[in-house]
Design a protein around this nucleic acid. Sequence first.
RNA 1: GGGCGCGUAGCUCAGCGGAAGAGCACUCGGCUUACACCCGAGCGGUCGCAGGUUCGAACCCUGCCGCGCCCACCA
Length: 847
Amino acid sequence: MYERWVDAGYFTADAESDKPPFCIVIPPPNVTGSLHIGHAFEHTLIDIMCRRKRMAGFETLWLPGMDHASIAVHALVERALAAEGTSRRELGREKFIERTWEWKAEYGGRILADMRRLGDSVDWTRERFTMDERSNRAVRTIFKRLFDDGLIYRAERMVNWSPEMRSVLSDVEVEHREVEGELVSMRYGDGENAIVVATTRVETMLGDTAVAVHPDDERYTHLVGTEIELPLVGRLIRIVADEHVDPSFGTGAVKVTPAHDPNDFEIGRRHDLPMPTIMDETGKIANTGTEFDGMDRFEARVKVREALAAQGRIVAEKRPYVHSVGHASRGKFEPIEPRLSLQWFVKVAPLAKAAGDAVRSGDVTVHPKELEPRWFSWVDNMHDWCISRQLWWGHRIPVWYSPEGTAVCLGPDEQPPAGYTQDEDVLDTWFSSGLWPFSTLGWPEKTPDLAKFYPTSVLHTGYDILFFWVARMMMFGLYAMDEKPFDTISLHGMVRDQHGKKMSKTVGNTVDPNVWMDEFGTDAVRFALARVANPGTDAPIGDDNVLAARNFGTKLWNVTRFAMTSGASPALPLPSSPTDADAWILGRLREVRDQVDALLEDFQFAKATEALYHFTWDEFCAWYVELAKPQLADETTADGTRAVLGHVLDALLRLLHPISPFITEALWQALTGGESIVVAEWPVAPGADVDVAAARRVTDAQKLITEIRRFRTEQRVPDSRRVPARLVGLDAAGLGAHLESVVALNRLEAAAAGFAPTATLEVALAAGTVQVELDTSDAIDVPAERARLGRDLAAAQKELDQADKKLGNPKFVDKAPADIVDGIRARRAAAEADIERINSRLAALPS
RNA sequence: GGGCGCGUAGCUCAGCGGAAGAGCACUCGGCUUACACCCGAGCGGUCGCAGGUUCGAACCCUGCCGCGCCCACCA
């Protein structure tokens, strides 16, 4: 239930300075005993950014944060105490906190161990930031400053109360959920004065001090200003007229419980109504002077209704009545109770406006931008923030009271006068968390770290934490530092199960990254997570994803092994006259490098990962390595091939390193003899241009090879059989140099004397048609060949029809760009040639 | 009630104005000296529905239908 307490991190980069970017990351804590998948997700993404930046020459730094973990540990401790049959109240504040520190030390170590297992790029140069002296100083400093500026005040307000935690919660900590409740209509007063009101919380009627109607509602005009007796309690309550009431809803009359409903509280203020509190801090009815005192609120809801029914006052009951109820997002997800209470608040309006303006002006960017409206709707409509908590773990409110009740707010270096006692409440964890970007750097002292690292460049976190944490950092950063805390807010989504469903313990579809790490390896988990990480979008992931990622790692391992046993080395000089395959793969490497760089810079982890996956598997392994085999057997190209293999693999491993650090480290060290890939350079674009002609020839060779494979499969020629073949027109198509590859990849052999082909293929390529004569040693399977050619014919015919349709449209020829029209014409011509060729083949087949 | 987003191959998702894609699943064939955690070949989609804009729409606009998330003090 605390699983998503905090998961956040940010890294900073300053492109201006000499050693520009560096990173700060807050390792996400977790309360479930070990790493949570959401944390693994976020951690992985941040680590990818950090590693890449570091390889590109940026200074990196992690700043492990235990601040949030403290709160999480607090919950763990409570749970442990409950298991021991005791409670924090029995234990007492001092002992409880002492106990918590022990847990924190142990638990914090565990979190860090988990992080290391995930392969984080941490420099353990910074002491942990905990609820220590430094963070206390920061909190007290900003509290005092806000207090002196009149931005912190104490007031009796309607707050969200959690009877379970016996504490107040802020608005964001309340989750509204549709529940099936009841709507009970009841009659107050009798005869002429009778008035019917409805409620979903019957027990609150014990605290009613008025009934409100709309001023223009003629049904009740005669009653306004009169008094009526409150059933069960016997108190006289007023009938007031208030604009807030909607005359068209229900009876048009509303019961008013000022101390237990936000709307009623406002009505109470407008009409100067008494505001009796009828519930204690545990949610039990109290001080009503009725038989219901001491009952739990839910029990009272039933009993009060029964008592009213006994008096014949229940007019109607609607059940189930679906309505929205606020629940405590922490703890046991119990319904929160609106309650009048004396609490500390931050006057948010000026702070929030600055936070909104920072994004509006473009000074701070939200990525992806679809989430901007969410930011504005929050920041522009924020209510004052209740910051006091009746918990024991946290920074205490730095306010002291004299015996007479005089309050004084003290800064970090001030001592309270004798006899003063400190406020018992602690601050909302997000209050101190909001200081993170600068308090961890030594603020309020003007430290070199602060000067160097503030403001940061990027904050990366889940969108679920936008309001809790990001908004607070923005407000406090702008207020305390007079400068935004970061340039860019980069948001990722939530990890979902393989069907895109929300992970939930009750559904049982949660996954434990530790189990995955044990089963598939850490790199596989990271790769799988990165591969589904689209900005701001939820990420579905299951065993299959991790399995595929594991297989990818194995593939990488195997291809490196092949390259090394072939003598590949990045230290060898690249060939001065590369083969087509060499030129092609080097060109592709360059393109992929540029693509990956741009994608990662734009937080497109999934696309960058996908690009690397395809390049590695489908281009490098599936084609280049196969084309390289004959090159390695040829003395004239062998050395150059070893160099290209080594060069491409070296760069590829470095490109993959941020995503899968462990395997790339092992392979890269073996391949290059380098000290560590962690400190290797991020690949830079080579100077040479992409060789377009060579690339086209490789594409042709691929097509030729694929067509022959198709034929073999269709004809059920066993893969093991070498097929004598003669290729006609290869030189004319510019593919003379590829003969070896075509022969090797299709398991062909040179035509011997007396070669008598049993079949002939014609493959149309960019630079001409190649005839492939094959001796399959059997009569060919005519129906199969007919079917194959028939499919090709249908495809060509469809192509021709589409082209004809377009070209037959004068408007298309007239208005479409010339290159598009030319392209269609070329396709039409090719399709026509294909049809002619295929038809002649079909005609030549024995019947 | 407001805001954002999504409905594309059996599943999860890319593509967002000029030839329908990937992973997994499925079918068929393979122990080809890196790899069976593999290789090769395939099957599979009127891109939610209806209009509109355009020479051209999965992609832009409008309206519906279904779904998700966030925000919101209606008893």
